[in-house]
Computed example of a mutant assay.
Amino acid sequence: MRHRDRTDEPHDDYSAFRRAVQFDLAQDINAGFVSAYFRSFATPDSARVLMASGAMQSDPLKRATDTGVVIYELIANGFDHPRSMQMLELLRRVHKGLPVTADDYRYVLLSMLIVPYRWCARYGIRPWTTEETAQGVAFFTELGDRIGIDRLPPTMTAMEAFFDQYETDTVRPSPDSHTLVLASLDVFRFQLTGPMRLLRFLAPQLLSATVEDPRICHALGIPPAARWTRALLHTSAGARRAVNRITGPRRRLFFTPGAPVGAYPHGYRPSDVGPERTKL
């Protein structure tokens, strides 16, 4: 278990949340992050901004990889690490002056917390513990403070209420949303590994099951989740729970800063992440 007892971990208040992300619930939380990434396309204003950047169309795998790398770097290293400082500066830079509301920012930030939280409750090997939940809320609240997204709801219950009301008020179909999904389907296919690789040709149907909410599917222009895809997710979840009871949680880090990942098959430097400054 020496990989789980790292002496170079940050000395902050997020150790239980970090352990869940890196070890105990790593695959489930990552699946939630993927679902949250696509869910953010479902509001017309956000979809329009994403389309205007051009990154989703020109290099969707890099755009998706960068989104994940930023969050994982911050979780793995803590907010005060030099690498994290670069990630925070990147977030402030790329979001500065965008034509979106404060609630738009809050929704996208909270999606990275709430969607994995709900995914683990529904399909994970177990739900989050009370400690993991409290630390997850505190982590994303601090992240918001550091990049200028303030006045987040104070509890998970209040955050979920805001999240659900925002979707009720703003989610609806748009041509931009559908275009973003089509441009990013290969990113979703890339996430299907192991036995699921054989089902990559069914990516739209599997994405629907991952998103699950019929309103979001309609807004994204993908078919609603079918019974067989929902059954597949539940069956897969049951199998992973059974395996976990035998093997226990993973013993190696899920994410290692700088290691090969996604669009960076040979590894990356913090300066590689995000759009080129000259394009902003």
Rank of each mutant, 00 (worst) to 15 (best):
M1R: 08
H3G: 04
R6A: 12
D8T: 14
P10D: 01
H11D: 07
Y14M: 02
S15C: 06
F17Y: 14
R19H: 14
V21I: 09
V21K: 11
Q22P: 05
F23D: 02
F23V: 02
D24E: 15
D24M: 00
D24H: 09
D24C: 05
L25F: 08
L25M: 08
D28S: 10
D28Q: 10
I29M: 14
I29F: 12
N30E: 13
G32K: 11
F33S: 02
A36Y: 08
F38T: 00
R39S: 04
S40C: 08
F41Q: 01
A42C: 10
A42R: 06
T43A: 07
M51G: 04
S53T: 13
S53W: 04
G54S: 07
A55Q: 14
M56E: 09
S58V: 13
G68D: 07
V69T: 15
V69S: 06
I71V: 12
E73T: 12
I75W: 13
A76H: 15
A76C: 13
N77T: 06
F79I: 01
P82T: 10
P82Y: 15
R83G: 00
M85W: 02
M85A: 13
M87L: 11
M87C: 09
L90E: 04
L90K: 13
L91F: 12
V94D: 06
V94T: 11
V94F: 14
H95G: 05
K96G: 00
V100I: 15
T101S: 15
A102M: 10
R106N: 01
Y107H: 15
V108K: 06
L110C: 02
L113R: 07
Y117V: 05
Y117M: 05
C120M: 08
C120D: 04
R122T: 15
I125W: 04
I125K: 06
E132Q: 12
Q135P: 08
E142M: 08
G144S: 11
R146V: 02
I147G: 05
G148L: 11
I149M: 07
L152E: 08
P153Q: 09
P153T: 11
P154E: 15
T155H: 12
T157V: 10
T157P: 00
A158C: 00
Q165K: 13
Y166K: 08
T168I: 09
V171P: 04
V171K: 00
R172I: 01
P173S: 05
P175Q: 09
D176N: 05
S177W: 07
H178E: 15
V181Y: 06
L185T: 06
R189I: 07
F190I: 00
Q191C: 07
Q191W: 00
G194K: 12
R197Q: 03
L199S: 11
L202G: 01
L202A: 13
L202I: 01
L206W: 13
S208G: 14
T210M: 13
E212M: 05
P214R: 04
C217P: 05
H218G: 02
A226C: 09
R227F: 14
R230S: 08
G238L: 09
G248D: 13
G248Y: 12
G248K: 12
P249N: 09
R250T: 05
R252F: 10
F254P: 00
G258S: 02
P260Q: 12
G262R: 09
P265G: 02
G267Y: 14
R269G: 05
P270I: 05
V273L: 09
K279E: 13
